[in-house]
Write a protein that binds this DNA or RNA. Structure first.
Lengths: 197, 197
DNA sequence: CTGGATCAGGAATGGTGGTTCCGCTTACGT
DNA sequence: ACGTAAGCGGAACCACCATTCCTGATCCAG
């Protein structure tokens, strides 16, 4: 690969990172090219289409997520629930700065995730370690499942996206409520039935 | 207003109701016109633009929401928390059949909600009755706020939308988790700090 | 230094979908 | 029955964007 090509590849990724992060999937390829200081054609020389470009960034993000998870796993052996919460908070905070990955979580489906298949798989495996540990410690409701985590994160993503819309909106509140719900069953086994204490 | 015009108005609304419900905001105006058996021009004679048409349907939906809330309020005096949960479950179930209103919750912002301002206001007021009651009964965490409800519903909407994407995804689980979180603080005041029991 | 393979640029293409416009049709009061 | 205001249809318009393609520039091996 020629040296100038490699440098352009980086510039394109950097531009896309910045623009997808702030504008999400609406970001136009032309804008990315302009910001990278190259022509549109060059963008398409390096990535087959827009989805692939987004996919590359989503992949990066999941690698970062997995790093955060590994850290939580190694630090939180004594306090499994706290470790799980910390990891999810860290993931969410990162998501708050990355509209592109939020989009992938919510609407991207296979189209974008396909480019990060392995990383997503690892993400689930790592999360499972934390969830399992907390379940064994009895601090997470037994009917909770790892597959619920992306679902909950998807909800948080929506809250972040809509967040500019109104006073009193704070995705952190949403997240804390959800974390509380994960644990609640221990103290309150039959909330599902809707009974008043 | 001429009789045929009134009838067309209804047909357009009905067609839009069906299509927005299943396809969400992607629904094309041409498709609505075709289904209603009229020309596009006629659609635009009755509604200034696509947003106004969606807005009219969102308005209808909120009127239905408010009906559900009033019912929960009158039936649930003895079990405030159960009443609140029932109302939110009913709202969510309706939302699951209405991609248009989900869109409005998540991305529509003022553009769509503007057409249903009064109804949304009433929605918040009625929800507040249920929340307040449950809080006074001590079954909902004291730091909970009515303004959090639309935020949580927004999360549920995202889950519903993404729901076709994977096994193990079930917006009902999401909702129940959130409901549990609303109440959890009573039994577990410091979940936020992340401690293991 | 130079040939040719690699790469870049950006105007042009093509498809999509909201909105407008205007000649024709229809309902309905008199 | 008729005149006219209200209503209708749908082709045409336009803005927007991803993607392509071809000409000219650029690297670097030999």
């Amino acid at each position: 690969m020629r040296a100038d090509a490699r440098s352009n590849h980086e510039r394109i990724l950097a531009a896309a990172r910045a623009l997808f992060a702030s504008d999400g999937a609406d970001t136009q390829v032309d804008a990315i090219a302009r910001r990278a200081g190259v022509g549109v054609g060059t963008v398409y020389r390096h990535f087959p289409d827009k989805d692939a470009l987004m996919g590359a960034l989503v992949r990066e993000r999941f690698i970062a997520f997995n790093e955060q998870l590994r850290e939580a796993i190694s630090k939180g052996e004594q306090q499994p629930f706290a470790a799980l919460c910390e990891a999810l908070r860290a993931n969410s905070t990162a998501l708050a700065e990355d509209a592109g990955t939020r989009f992938a979580f919510m609407r991207g489906g296979e189209r974008v995730f396909a480019h990060a298949h392995d990383e997503v798989e690892e993400y689930l495996a790592l999360t499972n370690v934390l969830v399992d540990r907390a379940k064994r410690a009895g601090s997470v409701r037994p009917d909770f499942d790892v597959a619920d985590v992306p679902m909950l994160m998807c909800g948080v993503c929506a809250t972040i996206d809509a967040g500019k819309g109104g006073a009193g909106w704070d995705w952190r509140r949403h997240l804390e409520l959800v974390l509380a719900g994960m644990a609640a069953a221990v103290a309150e086994p039959s909330v599902t039935s809707g009974g008043t204490p």
